[in-house]
Amino acid sequence: MRLAVLSGKGGTGKTFVSVNLASVAKEAIYLDCDVEEPNGWIFLKPELEKKQTISVPYPQVDQARCHGCKKCVEFCKFNALSYVGEKLLVFPQMCHSCGGCVLLCPQKALVEIEREIGSIEYGRAGELETRGGILKLGEPSGVPIIEKLIGSIPAGKPAVIDCPPGSSCTVMESISKSDYCLLVTEPTAFGIHNLALVLELVKLMDKPHGVLINKGLPGETMARDYCIREGLTILETIPYDSKLAYTISQGQLAVEKPKYRQLFEGLLGRIEKEAGL
């Protein structure tokens, strides 16, 4: 099963849930798709086995060949090209690497060259395989790295996909090949607001899903009420526990304590059942 863990709001506990679930899953692979701020390694402490550079193609212009027909400028949906002052300007970071401008250019004035946008680190923490994407500072989109990360999952291997926050392109890419989506939320208005956004996304992408309420507080029922109203399955509620917060702040796995090992094993079992596996 490929399980994606997402939340909309940051800081609800995606990584906390992902690393602990991956640790109790048998011979699984953990993927850190939060490429702007990967932090699963803090808890899993993998031994680095391989590092792969990720590059994307973008157009380079030969000004001498360009006759200024602007076919490329008009074609580009992301406005990565501009022709002014008898010169073609290229904005590499706007480019989505479709290659259309190169194909269209009647003068063959454009060629594709590559730019490094980040890397993927391959590692191992005991039985668990780990892979984490890292986006270079200043690069606008982590999508190509996430695409490679998701594409690298060996067939049939159970995977836990730690998604980026939000509900935009990077999250869509992260959950694109998942069998089940675990939506992590917290009992705050902000948490529920962003849960509604990712709920819309997983419905749109037709992904089976369930909710985990993290940092539950006695008597505070807003997250639970929302789930009941929306007809969502609550797979687990983890009560707020200052000792657990301390454990996390020390970069330790919760499943090292029997109480939480049991909780995450139970949760994994319920997810597998929900996903029909």
């Binding site: 400028v73 992301f78 406005n79 990565a80 501009s82 002014v84 002052g85 904005f91 706007m94």
Partner: peptide, 18 residues
């Protein structure tokens, strides 16, 4: 026409001005 562009609105708008 750049007002609703998915990205690079400034570039497209500047192209128009030119």
């Amino acid at each position: 026409e750049a007002a609703m562009a998915p990205g690079g609105a400034g570039i497209k708008a500047a192209q128009k001005i030119a």
